[in-house]
Each structure stands twice: as C-alpha cells, then as structure tokens.
C-alpha cells in the first residue's frame, strides 16, 4: 500500500541517516588519520580533515608489516576460495537439481546441514584432519587393529588455507534456486539436440547463470579475504601469512611510538581489494540476487 505520510517518511529517513553516519564514522577516522602526521593523529581533539601524508604513511606500513607477501597470499587465498566455491557449488547444484538419484535427498540435506556448521564451530576437528589428512582413515583402521604410517598434512600451504573453506551451502542454494527456475524443456530440448549432461552444463547452465556467478564471486571474495581464524591456525611460516594476520603487526607496540597514522594507512590498504571487487561487480551482484534474468 502506498500512502502519503510526510512525517513517517521524515522519521524513517532520519533513522536511516543516523545509521549511515554511524557506519561512516569509523571510515572517516581511518581516511583522515591515514593521511596525517604522527603529531596530527595524536592531537586532541581529533581532526577529521585529511592531510597530505598518506603515501609516506602507506609505504611505512607496507614495510613494517611486510604487506607485499601478505597481500599476495591473501589475494591467492581469496581467489582460490572464490573460484573453488563458485565451481563446486555450481556442480553440486547441477547434481541436485538435474539428476534423479535415490540419494538425492541425502545429498541435499548433507549440503544443507553445513549451513548450521560453519568453520568456526567445527574448527578443532577440521584442524585435526588438516594436520593429518589420513587421521579419519587411521581411526577407522585402528578399530580393526591395523596401523598405517602415512604422514601428510596441509599446514603451511595454500591448499590448507583454502580447501576447508571451499564447501559452501550458500553458493549451492543460490545456484539451486536459479536452476530450478529454468524450464524442464530447456534440458529436454538440449537432449533432443544431442547434448549430453556435461555439455548441457557448460553450454547452457554456465552462460545462463552468469549473473549468479558474479554475485557469488563478490560475496565469496570478501568472505575469503576476511578469513582470520583459519589462517591463524594453519599458518606458522611467515611466508604464508595473510593480511588479516598482518593487521596485528601494524599496531604500535605497547611502549613504542604511537604512530597510529601508519596503522590506519596499512588498514586502508588492506581494505582496498574487497572494496574494488564489490565496486566493480556490484551491478551484477544486485541483479544476480534479486532477479532471474532470462
């Protein structure tokens, strides 16, 4: 129902603006602080005006936290997680929607249940497996009194950083919802034209789900980039550390110089890639989630 309610409108807008400024405030602090000198950033009251020191602060931050390695690692990790999630969820949804097997519901619910078990909940068992890949096999075998001696772990590797994060129910459901909107005749027409199921997947489903894929890419890149707990567990070797871990290294030490301007410049650099990805993909992001373009 659409009504003219000027006072209610003004009220809702006021609440919205308030929320907007609350969100925006920290960003203003970061942007302003990152471009000030150490004296300026420590002045009370804090000035929200940006100054001209950003490049200097940024290069100091870059050097202090070894952001070069960390940024590279994070980019690789986020890219692998994104690609893996997008590909795996497309395949899973394809299997769930287009194939009739007796175990269909088992598969569906086993994917569904992972929504209730995010990584943070299952972090200990997941770590145990990642630290010793054959652990599950060994424990089964030990029931029969057998013992094998194979050691293979994923610690300090890109595989270890990404693989446990790749299975995703969210992505699978996004694809599933889209696949289910496609008419059955589309698959049948393709079958009549002689296309097998794999060919159908690549020729029809992938091109048709382009907007979905971009929406998912956006979400999953940000998700992969923001991972903190898992890399912290998996990585001990500094050459594999990610930006979220470097954030700590950017903090001024307890009794050291309070150069918060460098810290803020560093966090601005770390924030940049997901912002760029979202900015570039947001048009498709909204379309992929809202409408089913056909």
């Amino acid at each position: 129902m659409i009504q003219r309610t000027p006072y209610a409108d003004a009220f809702t807008y006021a609440i919205m603006m308030l929320g907007f400024f609350l969100l925006l405030g920290p960003f203003l602090v970061v942007i302003a602080g990152a471009s000030q000198t150490m004296q300026q950033v420590n002045t009370v009251p804090f000035s929200f005006l940006p100054q001209g020191e950003f490049m200097k602060n940024a290069s100091a931050a870059w050097a202090r936290a070894d952001l070069r390695t960390a940024m590279t690692n994070s980019l690789i990790m986020a890219a692998l997680v994104t690609a893996g999630k997008v590909a795996l969820s497309a395949c899973t949804a394809f299997a769930i929607v287009f194939f009739r097997t007796p175990l269909k519901h088992v598969f569906f619910w086993s994917v569904f249940i992972t929504l209730m078990l995010p990584l943070e909940v299952r972090v200990v068992p997941t770590y145990a497996v990642a630290a010793d890949l054959f652990q599950p096999v060994k424990s089964v075998l030990s029931l029969f009194g057998l013992d094998i001696k194979i050691e293979w772990n994923l610690l300090n590797s890109y595989a270890g950083l990404t693989l446990p994060l790749i299975a995703t129910a969210t992505g699978t459901f996004l694809y599933r919802q889209f696949f289910m909107t496609l008419p059955d005749e589309l698959a049948e027409a393709a079958r009549m034209d002689g296309s097998g199921s794999v060919r159908f997947f690549f020729d029809m489903l992938l091109p048709l789900s382009r907007t979905n894929m971009l929406a998912l890419t956006t979400i999953m890149f940000v998700y992969g980039w923001n991972q903190y707990l898992w890399p912290l567990l998996m990585v001990t070797d500094p050459s594999y550390k990610t930006v979220m871990m470097s954030l700590r290294a950017l903090l001024p030490s307890d009794n050291g110089i309070p150069d918060w301007n460098v810290t803020l410049a560093g966090s601005l650099i770390i924030m940049a890639p997901p912002v760029i990805v979202v900015a570039v993909l947001q048009r498709w992001f909204v379309r992929g989630l809202v409408s089913s373009e056909k």
Binding site: P183, E185, E188, A189, A190, D193, G194, M204, P207, L208
Partner: peptide
Amino acid sequence: MVFQNYALYPHMTVAGNIGYALKV
C-alpha cells in the same frame, strides 16, 4: 521435437539456437 513453450536457449542468438544440434 518442437516444444509448447519453444524451449529456446535464451542466451544464444537465433543462429546459435538453430545451429546448436549441428555444433554438438
């Protein structure tokens, strides 16, 4: 077969639709 709702491939051009069977 010709379907009731045509079941055309929405992301392909007319030429692509007509020629898909040959491409396969």
